[in-house]
């Protein structure tokens, strides 16, 4: 075993050159963007890039004084958390049915749910805009919540279904002979047993919801319903152009919690990202 580990990649030099180079490609833009957040605006959009800036908290002051950053945060959190709750309430029973019951059309229903993930947001953008306009939900966090839930429902259902398929049937059979009803089995056995899958699904759904851009752009027309993702695109100050230092700060405010969540579910990430198709 040790010999495999040591000789891996055959040539250690080549291996580390490749790994370190790619690590730099990943990290350098992030670190550089972090310095953008802590420099004055005069040192960002310049003919000659400035690599060693004067440090300043201008962006932070600007964010607090000129932009309702707390409101954007609240909108993001409310819409994202609400959408994840909707997803779990709808997806857990659906996943249970798809994983455990024989019924006519099961395959087709499952594939229909999956296929909604393939639909480009732009395809339904115009009709969804009119739909929310007609029911008076434009520029509202509630509309965003409903949309985010719809975008992630397929993913959440399929991830949870995949984890439910792994639970041994004997467990359920034992409870059934004791007289447990279907819902008891779902609540008392299936949900606790596939909790890691449910958490994974919730985290991935939350990330996609935080990132959502197109629908938010169309639905949130004023800062009343802006989320962080779309608020960023509006950090422009007329003749001053794009306010990059504020954008950088806000993006790191969103990045930090996501990084922590993802590290927590790291082991389940590839299964989650493939909607349960890849186990490992």
């Amino acid at each position: 075993m040790a010999s495999v580990r040591k000789s891996g990649g055959d040539n250690l030099l080549v291996r580390y050159i490749i790994l370190v180079s790619w690590a730099m490609v990943c990290l350098v833009p992030i670190l550089w963007f972090l310095t953008i957040g802590f420099r004055p605006r005069t040192e960002i959009i310049v003919p000659e890039p400035i690599y060693w800036p004067t440090w300043s908290l201008d962006a932070w002051r600007l964010l607090v004084s000129d932009w309702p950053i707390a409101l954007y945060l609240r909108n993001s959190i409310l819409a994202v958390a609400g959408s994840v709750v909707i997803d779990l309430v709808l997806a857990i029973p659906a996943a249970f049915a798809l994983a455990r019951y024989e019924f006519k059309g099961r395959e087709d229903i499952g594939f229909y749910i999956l296929s909604t993930r393939m639909m480009a947001p732009a395809i339904v953008a115009v009709p969804i805009f009119f739909l929310f306009k007609n029911i008076g939900l434009l520029d509202s966090v509630w509309a965003l919540m409903l949309i985010y839930a719809a975008i992630n429902l397929s993913l959440v259902t399929w991830i949870i279904r995949s984890y439910m398929l792994d639970i041994p049937k004997e467990l359920e059979d034992a409870a059934r002979t004791d007289g447990a009803g279907d819902l008891t089995i779902l609540w008392e056995i299936m949900i606790p047993a596939c909790l890691p899958g449910i958490i994974t699904a919730a985290v991935i759904a939350a990330i996609f919801a935080i990132n959502e851009f197109l629908f938010t752009l169309l639905i949130a027309s004023t800062s009343k319903a802006y989320t962080m993702s779309v608020a960023l695109a509006n950090f422009t100050g007329g003749s001053d152009g794009v306010i990059y230092n504020a954008i950088a700060l806000v993006s790191f405010i969103a990045f930090a919690p996501i990084l922590i969540l993802v590290i927590l579910i790291q082991k389940h990430l590839s299964r989650g990202l493939t909607m349960g198709a890849v186990k490992g």
Partner: peptide
């Protein structure tokens, strides 16, 4: 993994700045 955890709109601005606005 890290680049994937940035909001896509922020990533677009990183590269807009690196290529165009910040040269």
């Amino acid at each position: 993994l890290m680049p994937m955890l940035f909001m896509p709109s922020a990533v677009a601005f990183i590269w807009k700045l690196a290529f165009n606005d910040g040269r």
